[in-house]
């Protein structure tokens, strides 16, 4: 069982963030939503650990409250 990693882990965070925005540059809301959904599925598959995924879902839901 692995827990969701919540300490910083992405090398060059600013670079990653820029790429993420560029991915959505010039797209409609509908296109962006579809890409985000596909992105979630691809990343979830890469992680593959249900415990981690559950932790991420919870953390994502809780953060907006």
């Amino acid at each position: 069982m692995t827990r969701l990693r919540t300490e910083p882990n992405i090398p060059d965070g600013d670079g990653f963030y820029q790429e993420l925005l560029e991915l959505h540059q010039g797209r409609s809301k509908e296109e962006s939503d579809a890409i985000n959904a596909r992105l979630i599925l691809l990343l979830a598959n890469h992680i593959g650990d249900r415990e981690v995924l559950r932790g991420a879902m919870k953390a994502a839901a809780d953060a907006g409250l």
């Binding site: 939503d33 579809a34 959904a37 596909r38 979630i40 599925l41 691809l42 598959n45």
Partner: peptide, 20 residues
Amino acid sequence: RLFRDAVLNLAETQPMARPL
């Protein structure tokens, strides 16, 4: 529907989506 369509669109090229 967004996730359903995402699974189906990915399934065309990505085997990872097919079991979903």
